[in-house]
Design a protein around this nucleic acid. Structure first.
Lengths: 348, 348
DNA sequence: TTGAAAGCGCTAACAT
DNA sequence: ATGTTAGCGCTTTCAA
């Protein structure tokens, strides 16, 4: 593979001139420029980004760390990130962590070793993670996505308020027995905040918040678990009339289980999701859900990160925009859908 | 940021010893090793991967180029890729191209400049693209995913046979008026092969293949287009009784349009998809589809790529496994689902 | 406008 | 077991 020296020799100039011709053509005499370009083309010269990166201040690499791509929420967000960096000459280094804190640590270390200019990530639990503080202390540019921790650099919706508003919609539809269904609650700060929002809405309506029904997201036996739980509640005479699922994917799984258990949605039981996945609108009945602007979350996070990186030019006197180190809360939306209706008439 | 020299000084040894301590601990006296590790920890030394990569043969970087992450097929495939490289110490450089050939060219060039060890990609049209030949000529390790071009290094299903089998299922259910619905047909070699498979099945049953109904994937007006088209067919008295959609996402969109047009699936019209998206099973009725093992496709492609890279050790006399430069065809599956039933009784 | 030269941080001979 | 040294390919002063 030809290197800059080969090109220089072929063009009859020094490597410095080749470098200029490639990066600052205006600094080079047109005739020389042409010779260099010709030489580069003939040799199929492909500049080695590693050399440049090793030398320079920046690599143009952005580290992206997400829990999984199996949930379209993250894929959507990634699309927003891509859209934001498109045309800036940056590239994305991608890692997924499966919500595993240890993998999170490793991944970050790896990305940092590659000298990414900045980090975009969703942590399992941003509030209790010292990671973000460490990164801040090290001066690593970084934005969290989806995590909402008010005092941290992140982009998200107000999960608590959004959840409350969603649950409130259920209440307004006439539901009083509402249970929240979540994955492992302890593993996700978002699910926790949504549960708080659920509690807010319930209490504001004078209802008693119920414990969340937690089911393991990764277990194949989800359907069965749901049915067992339902049967139990049935025996207790306390079957809820509505379920608030902490995310859309979970809602879809739950709905399948309900169907298999012979329950009709929404006639027998209403279901509300959270995320606003596009597929939700394609279902019938359409999935009622709390919509986060996933693509926009990704886009904004990336834009903020770039601003952060660029603001770091002089390294010292840089114009550190303080707003970039606090949360950016994007508006959520309630999407009414066919999975929510009034509760079935009470049977004596 | 501390570099290897700082660590050496602090540990009272040479940089070579530090390097050894980090990469081949067994070559270093335990006592020295301990000193180095202590020094590295105290200085929060983070090895600069760029230095190593510039020096070494390999970067450990794998370039991944996909059309979009908006379609879960590709996200699933990416999960398989991740699974395959997990634990190998490699990282993924990700780019999406939106099916745009020019972006494809740019992206590849970019990835190559970063000196990725190999490339994993889905091209819009692998058969007519000179890209793959160029790459092969340059000796770049590369595997195509989803594209099935028999003579190329790729991992996919046999799109033609799979489509034929799917369409045959429709025929066996009693359908004779079957139309294939696709995105821009010219843009995707897969859609083209699936259309061939459609033709195969129709002809084998003594039926006349119909022209495909192409609708722009990126247009928001999809629903409307479908309704117009249906109305037209209706007037012609030639409304098909079954639609074979070239992918599941399209099928979902089409089904929505059908519903909005007042048609029931499958009572009025049957729908068959292609891909095997997980959401298809969560719908009701569940989506009948031709299932590709997306995660496995990604996993295998990555494994083959790694084998290719590793086989290149001696650079010259390497054990170039020739099978790696030909297609690996993975088995597909027909998923029967609620969206396909017998055609409605003929009305005079 | 161009060239010479000094590294960026690391690894791997080669020497001791 | 450890040190010395020569680059990997590039950008960027500093001089000319």
């Amino acid at each position: 593979m030809a290197d800059i020296r080969d090109v220089a020799q072929r063009a009859g100039c020094s490597i410095a001139t080749v470098s200029r011709a490639l990066n600052s053509p205006q600094l080079v005499r047109p005739e020389t420029l042409a010779r260099v370009q010709a030489a580069a083309a003939e040799l199929k010269f492909r500049p080695n980004a590693l050399g440049r990166q090793l030398r320079g201040e920046r690599t143009g690499l952005i580290g992206v760390m997400l829990p999984t791509l199996g949930n379209p929420v993250f894929a959507d967000c990634l699309e927003g990130i891509e859209a934001a960096i498109d045309g800036t000459g940056r590239r994305l280094l991608l890692v997924t962590t499966q919500y595993d804190p240890e993998r999170e640590r490793n991944a970050i270390e790896t990305l940092l070793q590659q000298r990414v200019d900045g980090l975009l990530m969703t942590l399992a639990d941003a509030e209790h993670s010292a990671l973000v503080d460490d990164l801040a202390a090290e001066g690593v540019a970084c934005q969290l996505v989806y995590n909402d921790a008010p005092e941290r650099p992140c982009v998200s919706v107000d999960n608590r308020a959004a959840a409350a508003q969603g649950v409130n919609m259920l209440i307004e539809a006439g539901h009083r027995d509402i249970v929240m269904v979540t994955g492992a609650l302890h593993a996700s700060d978002r699910a926790k905040r949504r549960y708080l929002g659920y509690g807010d809405a319930m209490q504001a309506a004078g209802l008693t918040p119920l414990p969340a029904f937690e089911i393991d997201f990764n277990s194949g036996a989800r359907g069965e678990r749901v049915r067992e739980w339902l049967a139990q509640r049935e025996r207790d005479g306390a079957r809820p009339t509505a379920l608030f699922c902490s995310n859309d994917l979970l809602a879809l799984g739950v709905m399948r289980a309900l169907r298999e258990a012979g329950l009709r949605v929404p006639d027998d039981i209403s279901v509300l999701g959270f995320d606003g996945l596009a597929v939700g609108e394609l279902l019938s009945p359409t999935l009622a859900t709390v919509v986060q602007p996933s693509v926009e979350i990704g886009r904004h996070a990336a834009q903020r990160l770039l601003a952060q990186i660029d603001g770091r030019v002089g390294v010292v006197g840089a114009s550190h925009d303080p707003s970039l180190s606090h949360a950016l809360i994007l508006p959520h939306e309630i999407r009414r859908g066919g999975t929510v209706s009034a509760p079935p008439a009470r049977q004596a």
